[in-house]
Design a protein around this nucleic acid. Structure first.
Lengths: 178, 178
DNA sequence: TCCTATATGGAGATATCCTCCACTTCGCAA
DNA sequence: TTGCGAAGTGGAGGATATCTCCATATAGGA
């Protein structure tokens, strides 16, 4: 990519981050372009769909999230690790209002951060399954569905950390082998 | 309501049912008006928002659904009844492609069928809670969010009865007292 | 039959998405 | 350096969708 294009790409991501934070994941994209000081065409050329932009804007956060999770691996038993992963995934999803409904799509976009997050989730899931503490019929997509449900249930109202934690507990219990 | 207005209302609902089934819940509403042989203004006057129209068009189905659920009350234990309710709610939601995202709003619109469905869900939930088999901190809104998430996760692909059932199981497990 | 509250339709104002293309800029090769 | 082709750009405007305004029509009671 040409240097100027790269520069614009970064400006767009910075603007997207700001605008999504302020006004949610469903803002008019012209607003993002304007804030980035760039034409809409440039934005659409680089990020053909809203999900592409969301995934890219969120990539860095997701990257950090995955890395953090990976790093504390040894400290937690498989179920606690999975539980915490889910809780943090929901919290991240709630950062952009309206992201919940697209979480599945966004995670599939394949941005480095999204890929890392999916990979880490899968790793934790499989670890727990190998340890025989989580049901074998649970898939990573199921986890995403759980995170979506919790995010939908808690996203509207101002971040109720307690309630998120509560719901995560509840549904993690549902996945545990008894 | 004047007789001609009533007639038009019914035509709009019949057209909406057809069009939503064929092309999903996000079709252009002009299409519905055209098929009903009515101006758009008439449609918007009667159903100010898409959700109003969806709720009205879906009212009959939801009515039947609630009634069916109510009728088999004696045959099932509280958890099985709740589980089946959830599964059927998701299946109904998937009938109109794209309805999932509006499920919460639609259920709140207060059409007779929607009200009956909410009421029945709440009844089943409270019955299970009184029987001490479902956690007391689960609300009806949580159920709706779960149904929405499952519907979002399964709605795109056809023939996902197995997957729906699996996800419903998982979430139900989580809500059960152990 | 008349009269008016009620209802109608479709043109068009408004909003959003996305593309086209004339023009600009980068950066390599000579 | 400079020239030049490939890469990139912006914003006007087409396409699509939503929703309203208001001149006109009509049901149905008096």
């Amino acid at each position: 990519m040409r240097a100027d294009a790269q520069r614009n790409r970064e400006r767009i991501l910075a603007a997207a981050e700001e605008v999504f934070l302020e006004r949610g994941a469903n803002v008019v994209l012209d607003e993002v372009a304007k804030r980035a000081g760039v034409g809409v065409a440039t934005l659409y050329r680089r990020f053909p769909t809203r999900e592409d932009l969301l995934a890219a804007a969120y990539s860095a956060r997701f990257e950090t999230f995955a890395e953090t999770s990976r790093r504390r691996d040894a400290e937690l038993d498989p179920v606690s690790a999975l539980r915490l992963y889910l809780e943090e995934l929901v919290q991240h999803t709630n950062v952009y209002r309206g992201l919940a409904a697209s979480l599945g799509t966004v995670l599939q976009v394949g941005t480095p951060g999204c890929a890392a997050t999916s990979k880490e989730g899968l790793r934790l899931l499989e670890r727990a399954q190998r340890a025989g503490v989580v049901r074998l019929d649970v898939t990573f997509d199921d986890l995403v569905c759980v995170a979506t449900a919790i995010s939908l249930a808690t996203g509207q109202h101002t971040s109720s950390k307690v309630r998120i934690s509560h719901l995560v507990d509840m549904f993690t219990e549902g996945m545990v082998v008894r």
